[in-house]
């Protein structure tokens, strides 16, 4: 009996120690670095909230934080709006291509976000596919300047994160008892009415879940803002890179990291709480 009680600890001891050393402690160090003064990369030891005060009082830093949130919300909304019809179609279609279509809509997840964003750079840059096409059609004389811009970042992220929305909403639609819709129709509601009165409200948690998940990932994304943005469109992730690797101001970098960490965690915990509630009902 004693030995059996020890078994789980024997199983976890090596991986848990590894995670403690290279995940838990580093994260704790990061959080503490954000509340101490430092000389470049060397902490000097005094406790202070100056780092946060600096971030929140400087226009440049503050606008990066706000831009991250705006980008998160905007790409979350676009993802949900595009993912819902797609997910609804994929769940309900009787086409024999159904599985292929599902795979096609999720396969982009297997490619790095860099590759997926990169396509937009090809399309949107000054000499990119869109400008070339428009010019050859004679629609414009001068190339349109679409990069860098916050909207381009939002489009890129919405594109990269669309599969997450499809997954979350498909799960929610799959969990819907099909007899509820049949019941509504048997009671005289047309297809559209049934959708608005039954399907949509019952899948609302899936919609919100998809939104929050996309929001959290978009908010902390680095690659897309780096590729489609520029000095005028800094976000938290790109600022953090600047602090850590160029300015070597690790205290400010840590403080910005802590802000990002807490915001993303709140969003994702909300998401999983929603998921649990939906699973229970």
């Amino acid at each position: 009996m004693k030995a059996r009680r020890l078994t789980p600890y024997i199983l976890i001891v090596v991986p848990a120690t590894f995670l403690l050393a290279f995940f838990v402690i580093p994260s704790a160090v990061l959080l503490s670095m954000s509340v101490v003064q430092s000389e470049d990369t060397i902490p000097t030891g005094n406790l202070t909230l100056d780092n946060y005060a600096t971030l929140l009082s400087n226009r440049l830093y503050l606008s990066a934080i706000l831009r991250s949130f705006i980008i998160g919300v905007a790409s979350g909304v676009i993802v949900v709006v595009l993912a819902y019809p797609l997910a609804y179609f994929l769940v309900r279609t009787t086409s024999r291509w159904k599985n292929l279509l599902i795979a096609l809509s999720l396969a982009p997840l297997l490619a790095s976000v860099i590759v997926r964003t990169y396509g937009w750079w090809v399309v949107l840059n000054r000499e990119g596919a869109l400008n070339v096409a428009l010019r050859s059609l004679g629609a414009i004389d001068q190339p349109l300047i679409m990069l860098p811009s916050t909207s381009a970042i939002v489009i890129g992220l919405a594109h990269a994160l669309l599969p997450y929305g499809v997954l979350t909403i498909m799960a929610s639609l799959n969990g819907l008892n099909p007899n509820l819709e049949r019941a509504a129709m048997s009671l005289g509601a047309g297809r559209v009415r049934t959708f608005l009165a039954v399907t949509l409200p019952l899948t609302a948690p899936g919609i919100l879940g998809g939104f929050l998940l996309t929001f959290a990932i978009a908010m902390s994304a680095y690659a897309t803002p780096a590729i489609l943005g520029g000095p005028t469109t800094e976000v938290m992730a790109t600022m953090i890179r600047r602090f850590m690797l160029e300015l070597l101001d690790w205290s400010l970098g840590s403080a910005m990291g802590a802000i990002l960490l807490v915001s993303a965690m709140i969003l994702l915990l909300l998401t999983s709480a929603l998921g649990n509630r939906q699973r229970e009902s």
């Binding site: 403690l20 290279f22 838990v24 580093p26 994260s27 160090v29 993303a264």
Partner: peptide, 21 residues
């Protein structure tokens, strides 16, 4: 702790490791 890296932004895990090491 094991599933934590799913919730924490990877970027933050990255800078935490950079600093710590």
């Amino acid at each position: 702790i094991t599933l934590g890296p799913l919730i924490l932004p990877t970027l933050v895990t990255g800078i935490a490791l950079l600093q710590f090491l």
